[in-house]
């Protein structure tokens, strides 16, 4: 048990914080909704109803999609783009998908490489892009979920105000959908860009997200 915790400290800690903050979001979200209901002389809804409703899930998916887009785009961009001096970049000169030798593919695979790295053909091609594909699929699925749940929330609001409801294809062209989407994207891109450039000159001793404290500013990709 202790070994399990030690071996999985990062994923356990973030998983726990994720669940705690999700519960916090649910409690505060339900309270915010019921406060608005009270202001408009509407009926309050139960906590159980709120956490199973599109109101809650549209908000959850809206944030999920932007996080997964951020990582998907970052995984993709860092194949091709370099930031000199950044720990978040590859070394200059290694831009691109790199050789089979550098990536330990086919005959260059070692005995303990994942099997699909060595077998060649479609399995190696698929496995070579599996992280980007899975992160990208989660992004697309959560963005779709945001649009589907967001439309229900939008239509409920429209009905409350005796306004016409909209179809899904119409909803994805509304400013409501794009405002929910872009307000999340902009912050993700700023944070990623900051991480890329701040790690050139700033350090955190002991973190692999930083270069070693004594590493020169000009050194690119040297995890501490």
């Amino acid at each position: 048990m202790l070994r399990f915790v030690r071996d999985n400290g990062l994923s356990l800690a973030f998983g726990a914080v994720f669940l705690a903050t999700l519960v916090g979001q649910a409690i505060s979200g339900a309270d915010t909704f019921n406060h608005a209901q009270a202001l408009h002389n509407g009926d309050p809804i139960s906590f159980g109803h709120y956490v199973t409703s599109a109101l809650f899930w549209a908000d959850v998916m809206e944030n999920w999609q932007s996080e997964y887009l951020q990582f998907t785009l970052y995984i993709f961009a860092t194949i091709w783009l370099i930031q000199k001096g950044s720990n978040e970049s590859k070394k200059p000169g290694r831009a691109g998908r790199e050789s089979a030798e550098q990536q330990l593919l086919g005959e260059h695979a070692s005995p303990d490489s994942p099997r699909w790295a060595g077998v060649g053909g479609w399995r190696t091609a698929l496995y070579s892009n599996s992280l980007l594909m899975v992160m990208g699929a989660i992004w697309i699925a959560s963005w779709l979920a945001q649009s589907l749940a967001g439309r229900i929330v939008y239509n409920a609001d429209q009905l409350d105000h005796q306004a016409p409801t909209v179809s899904w294809p119409t909803y994805v062209t509304t400013s409501d959908f794009w405002n929910r989407t872009l307000q999340n994207w902009q912050s993700e891109f700023l944070a990623v860009g900051s991480m890329v450039i701040l790690s050139v000159y700033l350090r955190q001793r002991g973190s692999p997200e930083s270069k070693p404290v004594g590493a020169p500013h000009s050194e690119t990709a040297s995890s501490g």
């Binding site: 070994r3 399990f4 071996d7 999985n8 994923s11 356990l12 998983g15 199973t52 409703s53 599109a54 899930w57 959850v60 998916m61 999920w64 989660i138 699925a141 959560s142 779709l144 979920a145 945001q146 649009s147 589907l148 749940a149 439309r151 229900i152």
Partner: peptide
Amino acid sequence: MRSVRLMFAIYLVLIVAGLAYAIALGILEH
């Protein structure tokens, strides 16, 4: 590595379950 594989599976199941629920909710709740 067995415990790491378990964490990997837990994360994937959690994510897929959340996505599946939200998509189903979005399609079914009109």
